[in-house]
Design a binder for these strands. Sequence first.
DNA 1: AGCATAGTTGACTGGTCGGTCCAGTCAAGC
DNA 2: GCTTGACTGGACCGACCAGTCAACTATGCT
Lengths: 207, 207
Amino acid sequence: MLRGMVRSPDTRQRLIDSARELIYSRSYADVGVAAICEHAGVRKGSFYHFFPSKQELTLAVLDASFLEIKQQLLDRAFVPDRPPLARLERFLDLAWRFQKQMKEATGHMPGCPFGNLGAELSTRDETIRRKVDAVFSSLRTGMRDLLAEAVQAGDLEPVDIDATAAAMLAYVEGVLLTAKTRNDPDVFKQLAPAMLGIRIPPQAENA
Amino acid sequence: MLRGMVRSPDTRQRLIDSARELIYSRSYADVGVAAICEHAGVRKGSFYHFFPSKQELTLAVLDASFLEIKQQLLDRAFVPDRPPLARLERFLDLAWRFQKQMKEATGHMPGCPFGNLGAELSTRDETIRRKVDAVFSSLRTGMRDLLAEAVQAGDLEPVDIDATAAAMLAYVEGVLLTAKTRNDPDVFKQLAPAMLGIRIPPQAENA
DNA sequence: AGCATAGTTGACTGGTCGGTCCAGTCAAGC
DNA sequence: GCTTGACTGGACCGACCAGTCAACTATGCT
């Protein structure tokens, strides 16, 4: 009776998902390969059949996290059913809901999956650092496009959209880290909206 | 001549200093007790004479780091020889110089010693999380006082000084993390000045 | 049927982890 | 000079680390 594909249909994906969840809620160093395998219901040998190292798995985790964030957060928040800046507000609201929900479920604020890895590993693993950088770069591009649209629509005065996108993203990262360190989702709720007011003027400085 | 206290004058302090340097430039998990001892020229047994655990040493490291930041950064930047907001600019400039100097010396951007530990350990060690939170709280207070002075002097419109101080600090943390992940001090230089424009209005929301 | 191969298993390795233990050392107080 | 107690040295501990390996199983292809 519907035997089919007995041999674990998606061992590789289960490993990625387990690692993503565990590393996100703890840290890279605190989660061993053995713990990831146990959570995924997979034996050590199978792990190394699919991934040559913990580092390589982590790169795959970063891809998976980016996909998740894009689909669950960005694509939802950025639906063009309202003005660009209102979409940014929706983005912050969705992000806050998620952080709050994680706090309720686990007792901890997880922060940003990319910021966490960047903070922990940037000085120690150049490959992972570059990957995190690439993810942030993609996020910045999305933000930049939104700001360009806002400028075009006249909802935003002309700014250096690249720098302003980077600044807004940095601010969100900082707020996430602050909320995580205080272990309080309301910190995010209180501080995040100020992101919308951040501006970096075009070219050199002026007023 | 001037014998006194032959028995290692400051073994404890050397351990703290070594741990501070190593953990700051790598991470908590990447630096073992053995490495700290070796760097300090101290044997394992002595370590555990002065500190009951690596965690306790880390708490002492946080105190030492805070003292260092206060003396080398805050106390220098906040000298009241100019208007409050100009002191904030000087703070950013000093912070940038330090990050740049570390990059040149080690090849890496270290980021913020508190933010790093907060990101890595907040979900895993409640005691350290609280300590990091306390440090941030002190920093916020310093920033808050400066903003209060700026408002009083008429250099800044009335804002929610507590929330605005928190937002500015969060922004600096985010910029430091961004610069660390990109491994480029110029990111800090470009983005940091926007901190001065961050505002959170008093009480409820308005415009 | 037979073979190739993707996938699985669990025992195993060398090394490192944080932490323990205790005999020894030295300076100060009596 | 003897005792006390802070401090030191270093051997040692069990647990865990990332990673290896050879034997095994099931599936798909011919």
